[in-house]
Design a protein around this nucleic acid. Structure first.
Lengths: 185, 185
DNA sequence: GGAGGCATGTAAATGGTTACATGATTGG
DNA sequence: CCAATCATGTAACCATTTACATGCCTCC
């Protein structure tokens, strides 16, 4: 039920329409919690039914601006204070890695190489955002910058891994026993 | 549709029953692609209907051992060779970070601290697996070890980030302008 | 003989994606 | 006036989770 709380979190900053919120999901939120238009409008309806948000203004073209209610604000804080995040990882990229023994080593190598390249481009985009966007040192911006930092660090780690795997996978199995794993520097 | 291919991938190694496969999903696969018992049996039924797998043996207690068919093997290879992985990221831990401005800085600090601690324990478990399990340098083991390496690296990056955030978030906003972001060493 | 693990299956509910459907406003 | 964008909504489908349901076999 994270989408619910994501919407409450966004509306906590200032009132917004479904369309406004959608733009945020297409922007920064897309990096951490993708959601579709259809999902958004459905969930906004549910939140309004539940009294966590309310229509605060009507605009042109049927625009409805929603604002957080006191109940909504309380629910957002409860979520942030009293619940632990779902730490489930579901990553198809790594799942594939499990099964790459079933194809030619060259295919596996190409896979890792492509992962490194694609993710490097993604990382470049993140760096571009970090360098271009003016993040204030207070309020929402501060935490957006912290979230971005995670993207930068984990993407960089993934790129380094994919590069390591690219080389490692074509190296013939060495005759001697296990060498110790490189721990993070 | 990754579960489908995960099952094909596991059966490519050797025939197995739903129960056997479930144990794998409770073990190593849980780190990258969680799946429930109910999902497994349903999907095995569909794969059998589609002729990608077939019952290769019957055992005690109604045990049905499935094996990959030629079609199944072809589908696995098609997936590995001709499709790109879904790189969608959906991470509630980072989503929360976006909204932590809405609570007391102390709550945010505690959150990052807990994330660092919990993930450090997770990382310890992964290190334990890396040090304990005998990974062969060929076949499936080689790729399982590569997959594990990703877990080690990205978890370590996350722990470092959470520690950085813990300190960063209680530091008062500095008066001068932006300092450059530390890029990965 | 009973506990625990082996073993399979189905139903209902929830969350998410894709596709369809419609219409108003604004700027060139 | 036309294209792009603003703006909302619904239906069908698919994937995932939770819960229910059942029974066999082995070891102690």
């Amino acid at each position: 039920m994270s989408l619910r709380h994501a919407l409450l979190g966004l509306l906590a900053e200032h009132p917004a329409s479904g369309y406004d919120l959608l733009k945020q999901f297409e922007g920064s939120l897309a990096f951490v919690w993708p959601a579709t238009q259809s999902q958004l409008y459905t969930e906004l309806g549910r939140l309004a039914d539940g009294g966590l948000i309310e229509v605060s203004a009507h605009g042109a073209r049927g625009r409805k601006e929603y604002a957080l209610t006191a109940d909504g604000r309380a629910e957002l804080e409860r979520w942030l204070r009293d619940t632990v995040p779902d730490r489930t990882i579901r990553d198809e990229r790594v799942l594939r890695t499990f099964f790459l023994w079933a194809v030619d080593p060259a295919v596996a190598r190409d896979y890792f190489e492509a992962e490194a390249a694609v993710t490097q481009r993604y990382l470049d985009r993140l760096h571009d955002i970090a360098d271009t966007v003016e993040f204030r040192d207070t309020g929402p911006d501060r935490f957006r910058r912290i979230a971005l930092e995670d993207g930068l660090r984990r993407s960089a780690a993934y790129v380094a891994w994919a590069q390591w795997a690219t080389e490692h996978v074509t190296t013939p199995p060495p005759p001697p026993a296990k060498r110790p794993t490189a721990r993070q520097a």
